[in-house]
């Protein structure tokens, strides 16, 4: 597999925010990759740095207080972190190469401009086409994401649409630009289960038809079990486990991944069964310990963990299954 060219390869990315309470290490030496037409999920609790990682790659980190301290992001052979955030090249990357879809589509769409105008604006920024052609491309993009009566919908304002519909518009922007990679940041968190399923099926469809790749950032392990090819689990600014969906879900190795999996309410569990939780709260990123960041919450914590430095990712299985834990834990699978 090593011979295969990755679409995007991020190495040793470090992003910090400088605040009154000190340096907040939001992304702390994160490396990952995504191949062509692959669906990769980045999973973690709020504040684990999963969104900041994606924002850093897109150079959308507000500076100050944020700063990308190091690392590289190779997209089609070029390190896009070398570009200045406001440069022409970076603007071409955003939208044309990588599209981002956010959690709350209402805040990413302009409420006082019609959907059509916003769509054509994006298209005309990236493609040399006439207003009329851009409009037609917009209509096609809306039709492609399954919005009924696309011509009429172009004249709508975002508030005239439902949450699921708005999220479709965001996907339509990505479709219209022919992006190579779509980064969806919690794309379905604000939506109902049924709409969530619709939006995810649509994204799968887009990946299939447009031959794009997809990074899904989410806290919902159930969602990624169904849709992702590979998973990265993040905790306190680091990737603590990675692997194929099958390996990671059926044979999780890191206590945090095991905890996350156990915390999801099961449909077939006994009624009123106590849910297994991860005690405590995520650590303060401004004040990270030298030891494993998960140690205070870890049910398996051993004496040796307290003495050793923060564990590095180590191979624990085939197909690139890595875990950052001093202990060799295996969850028994039923």
């Amino acid at each position: 597999m090593a011979e295969k060219k990755h679409l995007l390869e991020v190495n040793h990315l470090k992003t910090s925010f400088y605040t009154d309470s000190g340096e907040v290490k939001a992304v702390n030496d994160v490396s990952y990759y995504i191949d062509e037409q692959e669906i990769v999920a980045v999973v973690g609790e709020s504040g684990c740095g999963k969104s900041v990682t994606q924002m850093s790659v897109m150079q959308l980190i507000q500076s100050p207080p944020g700063k990308i301290l190091g690392g590289e992001a190779i997209l089609e052979g070029r390190d896009i972190l070398k570009f200045r955030a406001t440069s022409k090249e970076m603007r071409a990357v955003r939208g044309e190469k990588i599209s981002m879809i956010f959690q709350e589509p209402m805040t990413s769409l302009n409420p006082v401009i019609t959907v059509g105008k916003q769509l054509t604006e994006v298209i005309r920024t990236h493609k040399k086409v006439s207003r009329k052609e851009a409009w037609q491309m917009g209509v096609d993009a809306l039709a492609n994401v399954g919005i009924p009566e696309p011509e009429a919908r172009m004249k709508n304002y975002p508030f005239e649409m439902s949450g699921g519909m708005r999220q479709r518009v965001m996907i339509a922007v990505a479709v219209a630009c022919n992006s190579r990679l779509i980064i969806a940041d919690e794309p379905t968190t604000a939506l109902d289960v049924t709409t969530q399923a619709q939006v995810m099926e649509l994204l799968l469809d887009v990946v299939d038809k447009m031959k794009t790749s997809l990074i899904v950032v989410t806290h919902n392990l159930g969602l990624v079990t169904r849709y992702a090819d590979r998973i990265y689990v993040m905790y306190a600014g680091r990737i603590i486990e990675s692997g194929t969906t099958e390996d990671l879900i059926t044979k999780p190795c890191h206590p945090y991944t095991i905890g996350l999996l156990n915390a999801v309410p099961k449909l077939d569990a006994n009624e009123h069964e106590q849910l297994t939780t991860i005690e405590g709260a995520p650590p303060d990123l401004a004040n990270l310990p030298d030891t494993c960041a998960f140690l205070p919450r870890c049910p398996y914590a051993a004496e040796s963990c307290r003495k050793l430095p923060c564990p590095e990712l180590q191979q624990v299985g085939e197909h690139g299954h890595f875990s950052a834990c001093h202990l060799k834990i295996r969850r028994e699978d039923t």
């Binding site: 699921g164 519909m165 289960v193 049924t194 969530q196 969602l223 079990t225």
Partner: peptide, 23 residues
Amino acid sequence: LSAVPITDYYTEQKRSRIVLEGE
């Protein structure tokens, strides 16, 4: 029920999904 994502990998691969059309 079929729209609820679950974390049982093998069941999830086999499970049929009923995706409701429209809103």
